[in-house]
Simulated scan of single mutants.
Amino acid sequence: MTDRESPATPEGPQPGAPAPHAPADVLPDAPVQATGTAPTAVGTPRAEEDPAARRTRRRKAVLRWGAAAVVCALAGTGSALAVTAPERTDVPGLATKSDGRYVFPSLTLPPLPSGSAVPKESKSRHAADLRRLLLPAPREAVGSLAPTALPSPAATVSPTGSASPSASGTSPALADRLDCTTLLADEKDPARLRTLLVQYACRAATAREWTASDGTRTRIRLLSFGSSKEAWPVFVELRDNGDPKDIDGLRSVTPPDWDMLYGVNFVVRETTPGTTGTPGTQPAARVAYLSAGDIVAVITMTNPGGVSAAAFQQVVTFQSALLA
């Protein structure tokens, strides 16, 4: 038996068999475009920028940042001025409720006559013009400040108790130079005080009145004597028995702990809060009697709605500073 040779197997793919995958190492590096054009090159360097254009771009950037810095500086300066220029109480968010204190002009001691010394002790005499030792009216004062209800000026209390005109017969330069009996018009029973003014020879008097915008009326009276020994009995009489007209129910209170200057003695009297028919916690009247060497001062503040404690302390302290 003879052997048959097997038919040769064709080397190509059999019909219906899947086409074999091409090896990875024979894949093309880049796909061929359908249009047949050459592929685009990757990573081609950009043309170098013109130096002049670069300088222009940098200059514009510097100008933009500089303008922004100037705007910020101007805005900050404007904000600072808006906060610091007005009064604190006028700035929204910083305004606080007023406690009644006033705004007074700058206080300066009056000039002394040539050869006169500044009083250093409570027993010293004041050489300055009494009228210039009077506290000025504050900014809150409204209406006329002239003491129209006070006695006529240019008169003094004589030892006999009668008022005599001045030697010159003319009114003094300042309208607030008054008769020493001026204070008598403020008292309910002035007889005892009149006797003391004559006995201890009151030499000069002055007064100032104002009504503030809150309705508080302030009256200040200054009386000058020949020495502290002559002024002291009048101060004691007022301190113990002073009874101003139109004020009822004055009572002595504990001396307040104020920073008063050396050489000034003072006593405070006030009404009981709520006794005037107006509800509130502040007295409707406060009175201070002061003694500073040869000068006696009476400060009266009234308001049906209540006299601010801060305003009262302010007025008394400032007047004392001018007398100390």
Rank of each mutant, 00 (worst) to 15 (best):
T96S: 08
R177F: 03
A128F: 00
A167K: 13
T156S: 09
L109D: 08
P147D: 09
L107S: 10
W65Q: 08
P51K: 04
G161E: 12
T156G: 07
A53Y: 02
L174Y: 13
A47D: 10
P110I: 00
S124D: 11
P172I: 01
G100R: 00
A61M: 15
A68G: 11
P111M: 02
L178A: 00
S144V: 04
S79I: 11
L81T: 06
A146T: 10
V71D: 06
R58T: 15
L63V: 13
L134C: 10
R58C: 10
K97P: 02
T160S: 13
T181Q: 01
L133M: 02
A167W: 09
G143R: 00
T156D: 09
A82T: 05
L174M: 12
S158V: 07
A85K: 15
S144N: 05
G78F: 03
A52L: 14
E121K: 08
P92A: 08
K123Q: 03
K97F: 03
L109Y: 03
L63W: 14
T181E: 00
P110Y: 01
P105E: 04
C180R: 00
S122A: 12
L94A: 05
E48K: 05
A141N: 03
A149N: 15
S144E: 11
P159T: 08
A95Q: 14
E49I: 05
R101D: 10
L74R: 10
L109F: 07
S98V: 00
P172Y: 03
G161K: 06
G78R: 02
V83Y: 07
C72R: 04
A53L: 15
V142Y: 01
A155D: 12
T108Q: 10
R59Q: 14
C72W: 05
A95F: 08
P105N: 04
K97H: 08
L133P: 00
A117M: 07
A163C: 12
E140H: 02
L178S: 00
A95K: 10
G169N: 14
L150A: 02
G78Y: 06
A75E: 05
P151M: 04
V142Q: 06
E121W: 05
A75C: 12
V118W: 08
E87T: 15
L109T: 11
L81P: 00
V83S: 11
A80V: 11
T77E: 11
L183Q: 02
G76F: 14
G115E: 02
L174F: 06
A67R: 13
E87L: 06
A155G: 06
D179P: 06
T160Y: 03
L63R: 09
A173Q: 03
R125P: 04
A146W: 07
V103L: 14
A149D: 14
S166I: 08
G169C: 12
T84Q: 09
R177P: 07
T56R: 11
G76D: 11
G93S: 02
E140F: 03
C180S: 04
S98N: 09
T56F: 04
A53D: 03
V103E: 09
E87M: 12
A128V: 01
G143M: 02
A149P: 13
K60R: 13
S162Y: 07
A117Y: 04
A146N: 13
P172N: 05
T181I: 01
A117S: 13
R57C: 14
A53M: 13
A47G: 09
A67V: 11
S116D: 15
R132E: 07
P138D: 06
R59A: 07
P151R: 00
